[in-house]
Design a protein around this nucleic acid. Structure first.
Lengths: 198, 198
DNA sequence: CGCGACGTTGATTTGCCTCAACGATTGTGG
DNA sequence: CCACAATCGTTGAGGCAAATCAACGTCGCG
Protein backbone atom coordinates (compact mmCIF):
# COMPACT_ATOMS: atom_id res chain seq x y z
CA UNK A 1 0.00 0.00 0.00
CA UNK A 2 1.37 3.40 -0.94
CA UNK A 3 1.58 6.05 1.69
CA UNK A 4 -1.14 8.06 -0.07
CA UNK A 5 -3.50 5.10 0.14
CA UNK A 6 -2.75 4.63 3.79
CA UNK A 7 -3.54 8.30 4.41
CA UNK A 8 -6.94 7.92 2.79
CA UNK A 9 -7.60 4.83 4.86
CA UNK A 10 -6.83 6.80 8.00
CA UNK A 11 -9.20 9.55 6.95
CA UNK A 12 -11.84 6.97 6.18
CA UNK A 13 -11.66 5.28 9.54
CA UNK A 14 -11.73 8.66 11.24
CA UNK A 15 -14.86 9.69 9.35
CA UNK A 16 -16.49 6.33 9.96
CA UNK A 17 -16.46 6.98 13.66
CA UNK A 18 -19.59 9.02 13.00
CA UNK A 19 -20.68 8.42 9.40
CA UNK A 20 -20.67 5.30 7.29
CA UNK A 21 -18.81 5.91 4.03
CA UNK A 22 -19.81 3.92 0.96
CA UNK A 23 -17.24 2.91 -1.67
CA UNK A 24 -18.69 5.47 -4.02
CA UNK A 25 -18.39 8.24 -1.47
CA UNK A 26 -14.87 7.15 -0.68
CA UNK A 27 -13.93 7.52 -4.33
CA UNK A 28 -15.28 11.07 -4.29
CA UNK A 29 -13.27 11.84 -1.18
CA UNK A 30 -10.14 10.61 -2.88
CA UNK A 31 -10.64 13.15 -5.65
CA UNK A 32 -11.16 16.04 -3.24
CA UNK A 33 -8.25 15.55 -0.86
CA UNK A 34 -4.64 16.16 -1.81
CA UNK A 35 -2.13 13.97 0.05
CA UNK A 36 1.08 15.62 1.19
CA UNK A 37 4.03 14.52 3.26
CA UNK A 38 6.10 16.99 5.26
CA UNK A 39 9.31 16.62 7.24
CA UNK A 40 9.75 17.97 10.74
CA UNK A 41 10.24 21.71 10.60
CA UNK A 42 8.61 22.26 7.23
CA UNK A 43 5.90 24.87 6.87
CA UNK A 44 2.41 24.20 5.56
CA UNK A 45 1.37 27.81 5.79
CA UNK A 46 3.04 31.13 6.53
CA UNK A 47 1.43 34.30 7.79
CA UNK A 48 0.25 36.50 4.96
CA UNK A 49 -0.06 33.69 2.44
CA UNK A 50 -3.33 33.03 0.70
CA UNK A 51 -4.78 29.61 1.26
CA UNK A 52 -8.00 27.84 0.47
CA UNK A 53 -7.11 24.60 2.21
CA UNK A 54 -8.11 23.04 5.45
CA UNK A 55 -6.05 20.03 6.51
CA UNK A 56 -6.60 16.64 8.00
CA UNK A 57 -3.61 15.24 9.90
CA UNK A 58 -3.26 11.54 9.10
CA UNK A 59 -0.06 11.08 11.10
CA UNK A 60 2.50 13.22 12.88
CA UNK A 61 1.81 16.53 14.58
CA UNK A 62 1.39 20.11 13.44
CA UNK A 63 1.49 23.37 15.29
CA UNK A 64 -0.34 26.63 14.57
CA UNK A 65 1.10 29.85 15.90
CA UNK A 66 1.17 33.61 15.46
CA UNK A 67 3.74 36.24 16.23
CA UNK A 68 2.42 39.20 18.20
CA UNK A 69 3.28 42.86 17.83
CA UNK A 70 6.19 42.44 20.25
CA UNK A 71 7.71 39.67 18.16
CA UNK A 72 6.69 36.96 20.60
CA UNK A 73 5.46 33.58 19.44
CA UNK A 74 2.10 32.21 20.63
CA UNK A 75 0.99 28.68 19.91
CA UNK A 76 -2.72 28.53 19.18
CA UNK A 77 -3.07 24.84 18.53
CA UNK A 78 -1.32 21.51 18.39
CA UNK A 79 -2.79 19.15 15.80
CA UNK A 80 -1.77 15.51 16.16
CA UNK A 81 -3.13 12.71 13.97
CA UNK A 82 -6.90 12.67 13.36
CA UNK A 83 -7.28 16.42 13.83
CA UNK A 84 -8.53 19.04 11.47
CA UNK A 85 -6.62 22.26 11.23
CA UNK A 86 -6.06 25.29 9.02
CA UNK A 87 -6.06 29.03 9.33
CA UNK A 88 -9.72 29.88 9.82
CA UNK A 89 -9.45 32.86 7.52
CA UNK A 90 -9.51 30.60 4.44
CA UNK A 91 -13.12 31.47 3.76
CA UNK A 92 -12.62 34.80 2.06
CA UNK A 93 -9.67 36.17 0.12
CA UNK A 94 -8.02 37.08 3.38
CA UNK A 95 -4.34 36.32 3.97
CA UNK A 96 -3.52 33.87 6.72
CA UNK A 97 -2.73 35.21 10.17
CA UNK A 98 -0.91 32.13 11.35
CA UNK A 99 2.05 29.95 10.67
CA UNK A 100 1.53 26.22 10.52
CA UNK A 101 4.54 23.92 10.64
CA UNK A 102 5.35 20.31 11.39
CA UNK A 103 6.67 19.28 14.81
CA UNK A 104 7.26 15.76 13.50
CA UNK A 105 7.39 14.14 10.06
CA UNK A 106 3.72 14.17 9.13
CA UNK A 107 1.17 12.97 6.59
CA UNK A 108 -1.41 15.56 5.66
CA UNK A 109 -4.51 15.61 3.50
CA UNK A 110 -5.29 19.03 2.04
CA UNK A 111 -8.93 19.86 1.53
CA UNK A 112 -10.08 22.76 -0.62
CA UNK A 113 -12.71 24.48 1.50
CA UNK A 114 -14.80 25.41 -1.52
CA UNK A 115 -15.46 21.71 -2.02
CA UNK A 116 -17.47 21.50 1.14
CA UNK A 117 -20.60 22.23 -0.89
CA UNK A 118 -19.87 19.28 -3.14
CA UNK A 119 -19.22 16.98 -0.22
CA UNK A 120 -22.40 18.12 1.43
CA UNK A 121 -24.32 17.06 -1.63
CA UNK A 122 -22.95 13.53 -1.69
CA UNK A 123 -22.33 12.95 1.99
CA UNK A 124 -24.98 15.06 3.69
CA UNK A 125 -23.88 14.33 7.21
CA UNK A 126 -20.32 15.42 6.49
CA UNK A 127 -21.15 19.13 6.62
CA UNK A 128 -23.11 18.72 9.82
CA UNK A 129 -20.11 17.02 11.35
CA UNK A 130 -17.80 19.71 10.15
CA UNK A 131 -20.07 22.32 11.69
CA UNK A 132 -20.19 20.41 14.93
CA UNK A 133 -16.40 20.36 14.94
CA UNK A 134 -16.33 24.13 14.52
CA UNK A 135 -18.69 24.57 17.42
CA UNK A 136 -16.73 22.21 19.57
CA UNK A 137 -13.60 24.18 18.96
CA UNK A 138 -15.45 27.39 19.83
CA UNK A 139 -16.29 25.88 23.20
CA UNK A 140 -12.66 24.91 23.68
CA UNK A 141 -11.50 28.43 22.84
CA UNK A 142 -13.94 29.87 25.33
CA UNK A 143 -12.63 27.58 28.01
CA UNK A 144 -9.12 28.65 27.17
CA UNK A 145 -10.05 32.32 27.38
CA UNK A 146 -11.62 31.88 30.78
CA UNK A 147 -8.63 29.88 31.97
CA UNK A 148 -6.14 32.48 30.82
CA UNK A 149 -8.13 35.17 32.59
CA UNK A 150 -8.73 33.46 35.88
CA UNK A 151 -6.49 30.46 36.47
CA UNK A 152 -2.92 30.51 37.75
CA UNK A 153 -0.07 29.20 35.66
CA UNK A 154 0.01 25.93 37.59
CA UNK A 155 -3.73 25.42 37.21
CA UNK A 156 -3.55 25.99 33.48
CA UNK A 157 -0.68 23.55 33.17
CA UNK A 158 -2.56 20.86 35.04
CA UNK A 159 -5.65 21.45 32.92
CA UNK A 160 -3.52 21.03 29.85
CA UNK A 161 -2.09 17.75 31.14
CA UNK A 162 -5.58 16.52 31.86
CA UNK A 163 -7.05 17.51 28.48
CA UNK A 164 -4.10 16.69 26.21
CA UNK A 165 -2.03 14.09 28.07
CA UNK A 166 -0.65 12.64 24.85
CA UNK A 167 0.45 15.99 23.47
CA UNK A 168 2.25 16.86 26.67
CA UNK A 169 4.50 13.88 26.12
CA UNK A 170 5.52 14.57 22.57
CA UNK A 171 6.11 18.31 22.25
CA UNK A 172 8.99 20.23 23.82
CA UNK A 173 8.34 21.91 27.14
CA UNK A 174 8.92 25.46 25.96
CA UNK A 175 6.17 25.02 23.37
CA UNK A 176 3.71 23.99 26.04
CA UNK A 177 4.74 27.13 27.89
CA UNK A 178 4.05 29.15 24.76
CA UNK A 179 0.64 27.52 24.40
CA UNK A 180 -0.18 28.28 28.02
CA UNK A 181 1.12 31.81 27.76
CA UNK A 182 3.72 31.46 30.49
CA UNK A 183 7.51 31.73 30.34
CA UNK A 184 9.59 28.54 30.00
CA UNK A 185 11.23 29.39 33.34
CA UNK A 186 7.90 29.51 35.12
CA UNK A 187 6.82 26.18 33.65
CA UNK A 188 10.09 24.64 34.74
CA UNK A 189 9.55 25.85 38.30
CA UNK A 190 5.96 24.59 38.35
CA UNK A 191 7.13 21.14 37.29
CA UNK A 192 9.80 21.13 39.94
CA UNK A 193 7.38 22.03 42.71
CA UNK A 194 4.88 19.42 41.62
CA UNK A 195 7.46 16.66 41.47
CA UNK A 196 8.40 17.49 45.08
CA UNK A 197 4.81 17.25 46.23
CA UNK A 198 4.46 13.60 45.33
CA UNK B 1 -46.79 46.65 12.48
CA UNK B 2 -46.57 44.33 15.48
CA UNK B 3 -43.26 44.03 17.25
CA UNK B 4 -42.94 40.44 16.04
CA UNK B 5 -43.27 41.58 12.44
CA UNK B 6 -40.68 44.27 12.96
CA UNK B 7 -38.28 41.68 14.39
CA UNK B 8 -38.66 39.55 11.28
CA UNK B 9 -38.08 42.56 9.10
CA UNK B 10 -34.85 43.26 10.97
CA UNK B 11 -33.72 39.67 10.51
CA UNK B 12 -34.61 39.89 6.85
CA UNK B 13 -32.60 43.02 6.19
CA UNK B 14 -29.68 41.54 8.09
CA UNK B 15 -29.75 38.37 5.98
CA UNK B 16 -30.16 40.36 2.80
CA UNK B 17 -26.79 41.97 3.35
CA UNK B 18 -25.39 38.77 1.85
CA UNK B 19 -28.29 36.70 0.48
CA UNK B 20 -31.43 37.76 -1.36
CA UNK B 21 -34.50 36.35 0.38
CA UNK B 22 -37.60 35.59 -1.68
CA UNK B 23 -41.10 36.00 -0.23
CA UNK B 24 -41.43 32.26 -0.10
CA UNK B 25 -38.18 31.85 1.80
CA UNK B 26 -39.20 34.63 4.14
CA UNK B 27 -42.40 32.76 4.96
CA UNK B 28 -40.35 29.69 5.84
CA UNK B 29 -38.12 31.75 8.06
CA UNK B 30 -41.14 33.08 9.91
CA UNK B 31 -42.17 29.54 10.77
CA UNK B 32 -38.71 28.59 12.06
CA UNK B 33 -37.92 31.55 14.31
CA UNK B 34 -39.68 32.23 17.58
CA UNK B 35 -39.91 35.92 18.52
CA UNK B 36 -39.35 36.82 22.14
CA UNK B 37 -39.08 40.06 24.07
CA UNK B 38 -37.05 40.36 27.25
CA UNK B 39 -36.65 43.13 29.78
CA UNK B 40 -33.29 44.30 31.04
CA UNK B 41 -31.93 41.80 33.54
CA UNK B 42 -33.98 38.84 32.35
CA UNK B 43 -32.23 35.58 31.52
CA UNK B 44 -32.44 33.78 28.21
CA UNK B 45 -30.33 30.88 29.39
CA UNK B 46 -28.85 29.69 32.65
CA UNK B 47 -25.86 27.43 33.13
CA UNK B 48 -26.87 23.80 33.29
CA UNK B 49 -30.09 24.26 31.35
CA UNK B 50 -30.72 22.29 28.19
CA UNK B 51 -31.22 24.36 25.10
CA UNK B 52 -31.55 23.74 21.41
CA UNK B 53 -31.81 27.39 20.42
CA UNK B 54 -29.43 29.82 18.86
CA UNK B 55 -30.57 33.45 18.93
CA UNK B 56 -30.62 36.42 16.66
CA UNK B 57 -30.66 39.77 18.43
CA UNK B 58 -33.06 42.12 16.61
CA UNK B 59 -32.67 44.96 19.10
CA UNK B 60 -31.12 45.61 22.50
CA UNK B 61 -28.03 43.88 23.85
CA UNK B 62 -27.28 40.52 25.45
CA UNK B 63 -24.35 39.28 27.43
CA UNK B 64 -22.92 35.77 27.69
CA UNK B 65 -20.91 34.87 30.75
CA UNK B 66 -19.67 32.00 32.87
CA UNK B 67 -18.76 31.69 36.50
CA UNK B 68 -15.39 30.07 37.13
CA UNK B 69 -14.39 27.64 39.85
CA UNK B 70 -13.52 30.54 42.15
CA UNK B 71 -16.95 32.07 41.78
CA UNK B 72 -15.79 34.86 39.55
CA UNK B 73 -17.80 36.09 36.59
CA UNK B 74 -16.27 36.21 33.10
CA UNK B 75 -18.04 37.84 30.20
CA UNK B 76 -17.46 35.88 26.99
CA UNK B 77 -19.46 37.99 24.62
CA UNK B 78 -21.62 41.05 24.20
CA UNK B 79 -24.33 40.62 21.55
CA UNK B 80 -25.93 43.86 20.37
CA UNK B 81 -28.52 44.03 17.57
CA UNK B 82 -27.78 42.02 14.42
CA UNK B 83 -25.62 39.48 16.21
CA UNK B 84 -26.03 35.76 16.54
CA UNK B 85 -25.49 34.21 19.92
CA UNK B 86 -26.20 31.12 21.96
CA UNK B 87 -24.33 28.63 24.06
CA UNK B 88 -22.33 26.66 21.53
CA UNK B 89 -23.00 23.40 23.33
CA UNK B 90 -26.52 23.26 21.87
CA UNK B 91 -25.47 20.66 19.34
CA UNK B 92 -25.62 17.61 21.56
CA UNK B 93 -27.65 16.89 24.64
CA UNK B 94 -25.10 18.80 26.69
CA UNK B 95 -26.20 21.31 29.34
CA UNK B 96 -25.26 24.93 28.76
CA UNK B 97 -22.07 26.21 30.30
CA UNK B 98 -23.02 29.87 30.14
CA UNK B 99 -25.53 32.36 31.36
CA UNK B 100 -27.12 34.68 28.83
CA UNK B 101 -29.04 37.71 30.05
CA UNK B 102 -30.24 41.04 28.73
CA UNK B 103 -28.29 44.23 29.41
CA UNK B 104 -31.11 46.26 27.87
CA UNK B 105 -34.72 45.57 26.93
CA UNK B 106 -34.24 43.40 23.86
CA UNK B 107 -36.02 41.72 20.97
CA UNK B 108 -34.81 38.22 20.24
CA UNK B 109 -35.53 35.59 17.61
CA UNK B 110 -34.98 32.03 18.81
CA UNK B 111 -33.82 29.52 16.24
CA UNK B 112 -33.97 25.79 16.80
CA UNK B 113 -30.56 24.58 15.67
CA UNK B 114 -31.96 21.31 14.35
CA UNK B 115 -33.76 23.35 11.70
CA UNK B 116 -30.52 24.35 10.07
CA UNK B 117 -30.85 21.32 7.79
CA UNK B 118 -34.26 22.47 6.65
CA UNK B 119 -33.05 26.02 6.04
CA UNK B 120 -30.10 24.70 4.12
CA UNK B 121 -32.46 22.87 1.80
CA UNK B 122 -34.54 25.93 0.95
CA UNK B 123 -31.95 28.68 1.32
CA UNK B 124 -28.70 26.97 0.37
CA UNK B 125 -26.48 29.94 1.04
CA UNK B 126 -27.84 30.35 4.55
CA UNK B 127 -25.80 27.47 5.95
CA UNK B 128 -22.67 28.68 4.22
CA UNK B 129 -23.16 32.05 5.84
CA UNK B 130 -23.78 30.52 9.21
CA UNK B 131 -20.58 28.51 8.83
CA UNK B 132 -18.69 31.63 7.81
CA UNK B 133 -19.98 33.34 10.94
CA UNK B 134 -18.70 30.46 13.04
CA UNK B 135 -15.28 30.72 11.46
CA UNK B 136 -15.20 34.46 11.90
CA UNK B 137 -15.89 34.08 15.55
CA UNK B 138 -13.13 31.49 15.80
CA UNK B 139 -10.71 34.06 14.43
CA UNK B 140 -11.97 36.59 16.95
CA UNK B 141 -11.49 34.13 19.81
CA UNK B 142 -7.96 33.41 18.67
CA UNK B 143 -7.17 37.08 18.66
CA UNK B 144 -8.59 37.37 22.15
CA UNK B 145 -6.49 34.46 23.36
CA UNK B 146 -3.32 35.98 22.00
CA UNK B 147 -4.24 39.34 23.51
CA UNK B 148 -4.89 37.87 26.92
CA UNK B 149 -1.57 36.08 26.80
CA UNK B 150 0.64 38.86 25.56
CA UNK B 151 -0.93 42.29 25.81
CA UNK B 152 -1.03 44.50 28.89
CA UNK B 153 -4.33 45.57 30.42
CA UNK B 154 -4.10 48.98 28.75
CA UNK B 155 -3.38 47.48 25.34
CA UNK B 156 -6.31 45.12 25.63
CA UNK B 157 -8.59 47.97 26.61
CA UNK B 158 -7.53 50.05 23.63
CA UNK B 159 -8.01 47.10 21.30
CA UNK B 160 -11.49 46.68 22.68
CA UNK B 161 -12.29 50.34 22.09
CA UNK B 162 -11.04 50.04 18.53
CA UNK B 163 -12.94 46.86 17.71
CA UNK B 164 -16.18 47.49 19.59
CA UNK B 165 -16.47 51.29 19.94
CA UNK B 166 -20.26 51.16 20.09
CA UNK B 167 -20.35 48.52 22.80
CA UNK B 168 -17.91 50.46 24.94
CA UNK B 169 -20.41 53.29 25.09
CA UNK B 170 -23.43 51.32 26.16
CA UNK B 171 -22.29 48.76 28.72
CA UNK B 172 -21.11 49.55 32.26
CA UNK B 173 -17.39 49.89 32.82
CA UNK B 174 -17.06 46.98 35.23
CA UNK B 175 -18.47 44.64 32.59
CA UNK B 176 -15.86 45.74 30.11
CA UNK B 177 -13.32 44.99 32.82
CA UNK B 178 -14.84 41.54 33.22
CA UNK B 179 -14.68 40.96 29.46
CA UNK B 180 -11.05 42.03 29.40
CA UNK B 181 -10.19 39.97 32.46
CA UNK B 182 -8.97 42.87 34.55
CA UNK B 183 -10.27 44.31 37.81
CA UNK B 184 -12.62 47.31 37.70
CA UNK B 185 -10.04 49.26 39.70
CA UNK B 186 -7.34 48.64 37.12
CA UNK B 187 -9.61 49.73 34.30
CA UNK B 188 -10.45 52.90 36.17
CA UNK B 189 -6.76 53.69 36.60
CA UNK B 190 -6.05 53.02 32.93
CA UNK B 191 -8.77 55.42 31.89
CA UNK B 192 -7.43 58.06 34.24
CA UNK B 193 -3.91 57.80 32.88
CA UNK B 194 -5.08 57.95 29.29
CA UNK B 195 -7.21 61.02 29.87
CA UNK B 196 -4.13 62.77 31.30
CA UNK B 197 -2.07 61.93 28.26
CA UNK B 198 -4.24 63.88 25.86
C1' DC C 1 33.73 16.68 18.87
C1' DG C 2 31.62 21.10 19.34
C1' DC C 3 27.80 23.85 18.62
C1' DG C 4 23.20 25.11 19.40
C1' DA C 5 18.79 24.16 21.38
C1' DC C 6 16.66 23.06 25.60
C1' DG C 7 15.84 23.04 30.41
C1' DT C 8 17.05 24.58 35.17
C1' DT C 9 18.00 27.70 38.93
C1' DG C 10 18.70 32.20 41.18
C1' DA C 11 17.97 37.32 41.83
C1' DT C 12 15.36 41.16 40.83
C1' DT C 13 11.48 43.73 39.01
C1' DT C 14 6.76 44.77 37.88
C1' DG C 15 1.97 44.76 36.49
C1' DC C 16 -2.00 43.85 38.38
C1' DC C 17 -4.90 42.09 42.21
C1' DT C 18 -6.79 42.59 46.70
C1' DC C 19 -8.48 45.08 50.40
C1' DA C 20 -10.37 49.24 52.03
C1' DA C 21 -12.51 53.63 52.12
C1' DC C 22 -14.91 57.11 49.96
C1' DG C 23 -17.91 60.24 46.35
C1' DA C 24 -21.42 60.11 42.84
C1' DT C 25 -25.41 58.43 40.70
C1' DT C 26 -29.53 55.77 40.37
C1' DG C 27 -33.79 54.23 41.69
C1' DT C 28 -37.04 52.72 45.03
C1' DG C 29 -40.25 52.74 48.68
C1' DG C 30 -42.26 55.33 52.40
C1' DC D 1 -40.88 64.20 46.75
C1' DC D 2 -37.45 63.18 49.70
C1' DA D 3 -34.51 59.67 52.19
C1' DC D 4 -31.99 55.83 52.04
C1' DA D 5 -29.92 51.88 49.97
C1' DA D 6 -27.68 49.92 46.34
C1' DT D 7 -24.78 50.11 42.53
C1' DC D 8 -20.97 52.08 40.25
C1' DG D 9 -16.68 54.30 39.69
C1' DT D 10 -12.45 56.32 41.89
C1' DT D 11 -8.34 56.49 44.71
C1' DG D 12 -4.75 54.73 47.90
C1' DA D 13 -1.72 51.13 50.15
C1' DG D 14 0.28 46.76 50.22
C1' DG D 15 1.25 42.15 48.43
C1' DC D 16 2.07 38.49 45.19
C1' DA D 17 2.45 35.75 40.95
C1' DA D 18 4.93 35.65 37.17
C1' DA D 19 8.12 38.17 33.86
C1' DT D 20 12.72 39.40 32.99
C1' DC D 21 17.61 39.08 33.18
C1' DA D 22 21.46 36.20 33.73
C1' DA D 23 24.28 32.16 34.25
C1' DC D 24 24.98 27.40 33.89
C1' DG D 25 24.34 22.15 32.94
C1' DT D 26 23.00 18.77 29.44
C1' DC D 27 21.58 16.52 25.65
C1' DG D 28 21.25 15.54 20.68
C1' DC D 29 22.70 16.40 16.15
C1' DG D 30 25.48 17.81 12.21
Amino acid sequence: MTSAESMFEKLRSFLERSVVITEEQFELIKTLFIPKEVKKGEFLLREGEMTKYAMFVASGCLRTYTIDSKGKEHILQFSPENWWTGDSSFTKGVPAQCFIDALEDSEILLFETDSIQKINEYIPRFAANYQAALQKSLVAKNRRIVASLSATAAERYNDFLKIYPSIAQRVPQHMIASYLGISPETLSRIRKQQSHKR
